[in-house]
């Protein structure tokens, strides 16, 4: 069960749209991340401003970036799975593995 050659992957008709979705989500995260780096370098004093639950902007933004990555990852997975189920349905009907 644990061994043997790597499996052959079937054709994925959703791959192009998944790829475009991935790039879009990447840029969303990139700009949020770049915003953090820019604030830290250009306006370091802003990082000390209290934002929520007594936490400053640095901590809130830092934790936020981590949480955002988890949430976006989950959203991406749901969207990709939906695309795969929708676009590869013809293969399933034809009884392909």
């Amino acid at each position: 069960m644990l061994h043997g050659p790597p499996p052959k992957l079937k054709e994925d008709k959703a791959s192009k749209r998944k790829s475009i979705l991935g790039v879009k989500l990447f840029f969303v995260y990139f700009f949020v991340y770049a915003g953090f780096v820019t604030l830290a370098v250009a306006y370091p004093e802003s990082m000390g401003v209290r934002v929520i639950f007594g936490l400053n902007l640095a901590v809130t933004y830092g934790f936020g970036l981590i949480l955002l990555a988890i949430i976006m990852g989950f959203v991406y997975h749901l969207a990709c799975s939906r695309l795969e189920d929708k676009l590869n349905i013809e293969d399933k009907k034809e009884g392909m593995p």
Partner: peptide, 24 residues
């Protein structure tokens, strides 16, 4: 903690850009 932020953010690149096409 900046390392924590940066190390995790790297996974976004891995998931959104690299993971699936590379496996293919």
């Amino acid at each position: 903690f900046l390392y924590s932020i940066g190390f995790l953010a790297g996974w976004v690149v891995a998931l959104f850009i690299v993971a699936e096409p590379l496996k293919r």
